Computed example of a mutant assay.
Amino acid sequence: MPGFDRLALLASITDRAQDAEAALRAERDWVPLEEADAVVVLGGDGFMLQTLHQMLDAERVIPAYGINLGTVGFLMNKSRSDKAKHTRSIAERLARARTIAVAPLKMQATTNSGETFKFCAINEVSLLRETRQTAKLEVTVNGKVRIAELSCDGVLVATPAGSTAYNLSANGPILPLGSAMLALTPISPFRPRRWRGAILPESSEITIRVLEAVKRPVAVVADQKEVRDVSAVSVRVSTEQRLTLLFDPGHSLDERIVTEQFQV
């Protein structure tokens, strides 16, 4: 298996994932994540995101091959009910897998007290009101103010990989994986009523400034990491780090994104 001689195996805490891990552990030798050429991830999309963030935080990113033992499994490959067949074919599946590059977002948030936080997001960065009062946001793209005051529940910036998640639920557009675009999508916009969001080049830098930040507090979430009481948030694509997902032939992420657009 050229390029993938040393494999790591990670599993979520669910019974299904733990059972699959036990079967795979007995099938071959595995190495710790920090020594591996690639990692096999057993679980759902949430656990895959957790694994990818773990690698980003460690600043050592290797290809990840997911097997869906969760619910949706948008970032995962199909599992097989026949465990023996499944474990025998794992090496072959990895050898035949195609690679998909995913560019994460880099988010910097400043709080009302002046603290600064930096996180990466693979799916989206979302700003959400903390109280029953509507959030008021100023939206700037590449240094130019595009919306002086957006009254809404929040706004999010989604990658193509994340465009079918929260972004789609907020009526945002689905972005093909190779589009090199970002979705800027409002969440329950009140004013301006006609604005339904924008599709921007991935080279864009988006800055959201919270108006009346103390009276109308806003939190920001980068995938699973939250910062509360923010005054400003900037988002851009991270050109320093690229993630690699491995997919079985015929089950790639770009095909799933196209398929999702024809769901009725």
Rank of each mutant, 00 (worst) to 15 (best):
E149D: 09
T99F: 10
R132P: 01
V157E: 06
G66Q: 03
E124Q: 12
Q108K: 09
S151W: 10
L150K: 06
L69Y: 15
E149I: 05
I122H: 07
V102C: 09
R88S: 07
N142P: 02
Q108G: 02
L156W: 08
F119Q: 12
E92Y: 00
A135R: 02
E130C: 10
V141F: 08
V139S: 07
M55W: 07
S151D: 15
T87H: 01
T99H: 14
V155H: 07
L75A: 06
L75F: 12
T131D: 15
A95S: 13
K106L: 09
A135S: 12
F117I: 02
R146L: 15
F74A: 08
Q54E: 15
K136Q: 14
T140Q: 06
L127P: 03
V141G: 05
L94Q: 07
H53D: 11
T134K: 12
L49D: 05
G46Q: 12
V157Q: 05
L137N: 07
D57W: 12
I67L: 13
Q108L: 06
Q54A: 15
L156K: 04
Q133A: 14
A84Y: 00
T99K: 15
L94E: 03
T110G: 04
L49K: 04
V72T: 13
I62N: 11
F119Y: 14
L49N: 10
M107N: 05
Q50L: 10
F47L: 11
A91M: 02
M76F: 05
V61K: 12
K78Q: 14
R60V: 11
G114V: 06
R80I: 00
L52N: 12
S151I: 11
G66L: 03
L56P: 08
R60P: 06
T87P: 00
I122Y: 08
V139W: 04
D153P: 02
K78N: 13
L156Y: 08
V102Q: 05
P63E: 10
I62G: 11
T110A: 04
A97T: 06
A101R: 14
R146V: 13
G73C: 09
V61C: 14
T116I: 05
H53A: 10
E92Q: 02
I62D: 10
R146Q: 15
I90H: 00
A109E: 04
N68G: 14
Y65Q: 00
V155C: 08
G66K: 01
M48R: 04
H86Q: 01
P63A: 12
V155Y: 06
L56V: 11
M48D: 03
R80S: 01
E59D: 15
Y65T: 01
Q133S: 13
T116Y: 02
D82E: 07
T134D: 10
L49C: 06
L75N: 03
A64D: 03
R93Q: 01
G143H: 05
M55C: 10
R98Q: 15
D82I: 00
G46N: 13
S126F: 04
P104I: 10
K118D: 06
R80Q: 02
K85Q: 07
R88T: 01
E124C: 08
D57H: 15
C152E: 07
I122Q: 06
T51I: 11
S79R: 01
T110S: 05
